[in-house]
Amino acid sequence: MTETRTDDSRQTVICLKWGDRYGPDYVNRMYRMVSRNTARPLRFVCFTDDPTGIGDGVEVKPMPPFDLPERMRFHPFRRMFLFQETLDDLSGPLLHLDLDLLVTGSIDAFFDYKPEARFVVAENWTQKGQGIGNMSVFRFRVGELTEVWERFRPDPGAMMDLYRNSQTFVCRTLGEVEFFPEDWCLSFKHSLVPAWPLRFFVAPKLPPEARTVAFTGKPDIDEATRGEWPVRAGWKKLYKHIRPAPWIADHWR
């Protein structure tokens, strides 16, 4: 059940950028998308190892020094630092959004939904009913999930070997998590691309209830806009096909 906030404090949204997979334009677009889709005061924070090109309005924070196993340098496990007892000068509830995400509707309800919950996340589209979230979208309160960091930090490599990915590690460590409503958080590939063979004739459509659309793996946001699904093996073109989705450009700006 959604509850209405009565205070006028800023909502804090965070994103992470490290390595060169996504450039500063992704951060700037995310800031603009979030700004257009909130009716409340906003604090937008980017943790990054390179602030070059990040525009006004984005509050830049340094990524913690890298002292993890080298194979984690560009791996999502690196974001486990978010679950330490302190996180720079941030406090209270934070909404984390991945950079390969399209914001298509109001984010305010993400803060209002089940405010008592410690961790609320999009349910992973390929693991329905298994208690696993997709951490492209999640909300938590600073300093309240320290068991994640305390389990991870003594032997990061062991946790990476034990779990397929960081989101499985987090959800299994917490034991019980809450999920945002299914129609708020969609996957482009798994929610919007029509089934085969309709995808050859019908373009992906955006449902009006959607608030975010995740572009995990391929295609990237710009590729999906043009109707491109890059594949290495030629036979995969038999099913990895999409028609252009120009509505993406209406939001990704």
Rank of each mutant, 00 (worst) to 15 (best):
D161T: 05
G175K: 02
L192D: 00
W235S: 05
F180W: 10
P156C: 15
R199P: 01
Y239V: 15
K205A: 15
K218N: 07
S166Y: 08
L174A: 08
T216P: 00
V193E: 03
V170Y: 08
T212E: 03
F188G: 02
P204V: 10
V231R: 06
E228R: 08
W149C: 09
K237W: 14
N165T: 13
K237I: 14
F200S: 01
Y239R: 04
E209N: 08
W184V: 07
D183C: 02
F169K: 00
R172D: 07
A158M: 04
W235D: 03
E147Q: 12
P197I: 15
F201W: 07
E176F: 07
S187Q: 09
S191V: 06
A203E: 02
E176Q: 06
A210V: 11
F188R: 02
D220N: 10
A195K: 06
Q167R: 06
E209Q: 12
T173L: 09
W184D: 04
P219M: 08
T216S: 08
T212G: 01
P230N: 07
P204C: 09
K237Q: 15
E182S: 13
V170N: 03
R151L: 05
E150H: 13
H190I: 03
R151N: 04
E182W: 11
Y239Q: 01
W229L: 13
L186E: 03
L206N: 02
E209M: 09
R153Q: 09
E147R: 13
M159N: 06
D222M: 08
R172E: 14
Y239P: 00
L206R: 01
R153N: 05
H190N: 10
R153V: 12
G217E: 12
E178R: 02
A203Q: 04
P207D: 06
Y239G: 01
F180N: 00
R164P: 11
